[in-house]
């Protein structure tokens, strides 16, 4: 399964959480800021544990943070 099939709303969620910085999110999730940057840019798919930790920081269900959408990837490839 390609990591590019997984998308996320972290940037939007950070904005709605009083414009939380990447560093603040990283500290709360227990990772480095570079990892948050990589996740936001779709360069890294986190483990299930980290995905849950990030969702818990925003106090939202996992599905609102990460979206599995293989069709979107196929559309992108066609374009």
């Amino acid at each position: 399964m390609s990591k590019h099939q997984i998308f996320n709303n972290i940037r939007k969620l950070r904005f709605h959480a009083n414009e939380m910085t990447q560093q603040e999110l990283a500290d709360k999730a227990g990772v480095t800021r570079q990892t948050i940057v990589a996740i936001e840019n779709g360069k890294y798919s986190p483990t299930l544990e980290l995905a849950f930790r990030i969702a818990r920081v925003f106090n939202t269900p996992l599905e609102e943070v990460f979206i599995y959408n293989p069709e979107k990837m196929i559309d992108n490839e066609k374009q």
Binding site: G30, V31, T32, Q34, A38, Y44, P46, T47, E49
Partner: peptide
Amino acid sequence: EPNITDERD
């Protein structure tokens, strides 16, 4: 220097 080594590292 980063003081933590996370899962990506």
